[in-house]
Design a protein around this nucleic acid. Structure first.
Lengths: 243, 243
DNA sequence: GATCGAACGTCAATGCTGTTGTCGTAAGGG
DNA sequence: CCCTTACGACAACAGCATTGACGTTCGATC
């Protein structure tokens, strides 16, 4: 069971990327590889929305038979994990920790959030998955290192890492999902703060009426930067005094 | 706000619930209605998992032909919105603030989170929408009231409310999405912490290797309770001294 | 440079899914 | 009691992921 953990599993259909020797061009001339498929999937989803993420449309975009994709990934889920891992890699590419745990964590959080918003449709599909692939492992190692070096005992470092990354991903999914909505629904959802919430009487809804302007302005932006700073405040307060 | 009435008056197939006169029992004797369908859908998802939420299985559970559902809802998405609307009310039903802002906010956060996890499929699709409907307005008014009564100035109350509710919804989406996965993928994602992350060498990944046991244990649970407490810590620290 | 095993792209088929055109039955107002 | 029509049932369609079989052609080997 759980034969989906990539290399341990011996589905004879898929050959590990490292062991590939023969590459035959498809009918339309493109030469397939894991990287080409992942890149095409990202481009496809970015251009035509999350509902374009189907094996058939991906095959069409690649100029290959849909079933050829199963020579490289065991399932569409497996492919999705590869896409998710690619996003993680893109988020942290070219970044190195400075040694200041607070600004390092802040930068990681903002990068993950920003990268998700750059590919909202893919982020919605992939942000809550655990890939166990190279880029994710590298990211986990980096963040754990920051927290342990800051002085948090191991149990705290682990649970605080968990809270930190899930908050980043949670906001990423939420904000990405709003961006990925059809333009019509997106505009309508935003407009609610200018219509329904502005018409409420101070008698029945005193708090909303008193802050309607502030609400309409604030709800347009992402709350993640503030939430991130609040989390970092709380972390700093829990940090044991250095010896 | 994409209220359902917008779509309702366009399709000739669906008759508004208020105007229904004839009710014919299905082959298996049940009498359909919006309420019966919504309740059955909730029960189905709760009992057989998210992947049971298909028109065909819903028809089976209702003892009716799947197409009969389209006499009451224009699409499965329309049905999901109706289900989601039910959930918003359920989350806060029967709850009243105690006056202690911190425990009140904590209770609201935990209720929203728990209610989402009880119906993950609906939560994933609906948690990031702004409905502007009665239950949502009531919730916003309540939470703003808690923060303003606690002593936060209006601009802070609004932006902190925003961070608070988006954190709750973000974790709700993230954790719901994990629950809504097909059982196989869900199990595989969890298993990664016991396989891929345990096999890493201390030489290449010292921080993961040092905490592998802790990671595997912690990642099984939701990080929301901790994240919520951290947020509340930070709020308490920012609360102006009462005069 | 000829040979041959197999890698991998392609084809076809299966069983899902949401959705809809059509038909016939029975509900219930007149 | 009859006539209209609401509405449940049926069948069909398009699109989905996935898989077994097939045959081309790559490339290692001698």
């Amino acid at each position: 069971m759980t034969d989906r953990t990539d290399r341990s599993d011996r589905t004879d259909r898929v050959v590990p990327e490292a062991e590939r020797r023969r590459r035959r061009p498809t009918k339309h001339g493109t030469v397939l590889s894991e990287q080409v498929i992942v890149d095409t999937a990202l481009r496809l989803v970015g251009r035509h929305g999350a509902q374009a993420f189907t094996v058939r449309r991906l095959g069409l975009a690649l100029g290959a038979d849909p079933s050829a994709i199963y020579r490289y990934f065991h399932s569409t889920d497996d492919l999705l994990l590869a896409v998710a891992d690619e996003l993680i890699g893109l988020a942290l590419n070219g970044w190195r920790p400075t040694g200041d745990w607070r600004s390092d964590l802040r930068e990681v959080g903002m990068r993950v959030h920003a990268r998700s918003l750059a590919h909202p449709q893919a982020a919605v599909l992939a942000a809550y998955r655990t890939t166990g692939r190279a880029n994710e492992i590298r990211a986990v190692e980096t963040m754990l290192g920051i927290l342990r070096a800051a002085g948090f005992p191991d149990p705290d470092a682990v649970s605080l890492y968990h809270a930190f990354i899930d908050q980043a991903l949670g906001f990423a999914v939420l904000d990405s999902a709003a961006l990925a909505l059809p333009a019509q629904a997106q505009h309508a959802d935003n407009g609610v703060w200018d219509t329904a919430y502005r018409d409420l009487s101070p008698d029945t809804h005193p708090h909303i009426a008193a802050t309607a302007d502030l609400l309409a302005a604030d709800m347009r932006r992402s709350a993640y930067p503030l939430a991130l700073d609040l989390l970092l405040d709380a972390l700093a307060a829990r940090l044991p005094a250095r010896s």
